[in-house]
């Protein structure tokens, strides 16, 4: 996260500003971002006990997601036609992708507050792109714990699901989680831009971000009707965990989509990122500040 180049989601689309000064143009921007990151680490250190509490609390959130799945399997042998081991692969992909995107981009959640209070003005008058600034200004390092836990679930589930490993599947198990991160990052950014148009939209974005996390924690066969169509394919959440998991497990899709769909995850993620970048650029022009 120290370099804008490794930002997920639409960040690469927001080009760093071109400096007029001849020397050290590129390193200058990096230096600026690094300084922002350092400053924010220092201000977090001002609240040390809270930091520890947050670390613990954030693991807790993901733990309970997994516990919920385990409890559900306590009352049924199959969920939507999937066994516990298979379902855990889906949970692992989803938790890791969401937790990582939340760490890197989830901060954008604060945009509605910035927009409502006009604090966003201060971000806009600085010579750095607005999105990386917002993300770095308060990078929630405490969420690291959640990423680690998500990764642990992912590793444990794919190693115990009896996957028949091929070179392709090895590639997929590496690429799919990253695509999921990009995808969730794009979702975070896109939904946050709603607040440029609807200032009091409050927790609305949660319905898609956290809703998406819950949605991707279960096989899409669980859901029904237009709700499934909308979330799984309208918004593309099926490509975060469900289809990649099918491809890893070598299962045919009960809903009838061909097997290669599991490999489409990176493509879907890139499309989502492009949409997010566009939404951000258009949205920022609708920012209306507040009366002084």
């Amino acid at each position: 996260m120290a370099e804008p180049g490794t930002l997920t989601g639409p960040a690469p689309a927001v080009a760093p500003p071109e400096d007029e000064r001849p020397a050290g143009r590129r390193s200058g921007v990096l230096g600026a971002y690094r300084a922002l990151l350092g400053a924010q680490a220092r201000s977090q250190a001002a609240y040390r006990t809270s930091f520890v509490v947050d670390l613990v609390g954030n693991v807790g959130a993901t733990v309970f997601d997994v516990v919920t799945v385990l409890v559900l399997f306590g009352v049924t042998r199959e969920l939507g036609g999937f066994t516990l081991h298979e379902a855990l692969v889906i949970v692992g992909l989803s938790s890791f992708a969401f937790a990582t995107a939340d760490l890197l981009v989830g901060n954008i959640e604060r945009l509605p507050r910035y927009v409502r209070t006009g604090l966003f003005d201060a971000v806009l008058v600085r010579p750095l792109a607005a999105l990386p600034q917002l993300l770095l200004m308060d990078l929630p390092l405490r969420k690291v714990s959640r990423v680690v836990f998500g990764l642990a679930v992912l590793v444990a589930s794919v190693t115990s699901a009896g996957i028949h490993w091929t070179a392709g599947r090895v590639a997929l198990v590496l690429v799919a989680p990253l695509a999921g991160v990009v995808f969730f990052g794009a979702i975070f950014v896109t939904t946050s831009t709603v607040s440029f148009y609807w200032i009091d939209s409050g927790e609305l974005a949660n319905s898609v971000t956290y809703g998406g996390r819950d949605f991707t924690s279960y096989p899409v066969t669980v859901y029904g009707g237009w709700f499934r169509a909308l979330f799984a394919y309208g918004m593309g959440f099926a490509f975060v965990s469900y289809h990649p998991a099918l491809a890893l497990l070598g299962r045919a899709d009960p809903l009838g989509l061909p097997g290669w769909v599991g490999w489409a995850a990176p493509g879907v993620a890139l499309v989502a990122a492009a949409i997010a970048a566009l939404a951000w650029r258009v949205g920022i022009r609708h920012y209306r500040s507040t009366g002084s």
Partner: peptide, 26 residues
């Protein structure tokens, strides 16, 4: 300078804010 709104970093000493701005503005 927007008189009603701060550009500085709330939790940092003024000196650190200035130093940070040095990097931001290169």
């Amino acid at each position: 300078v927007f008189g009603q709104r701060s550009q500085l970093w709330w939790d940092l000493p003024l000196r650190d804010s200035f130093d940070l701005l040095r990097h931001v503005y290169r």
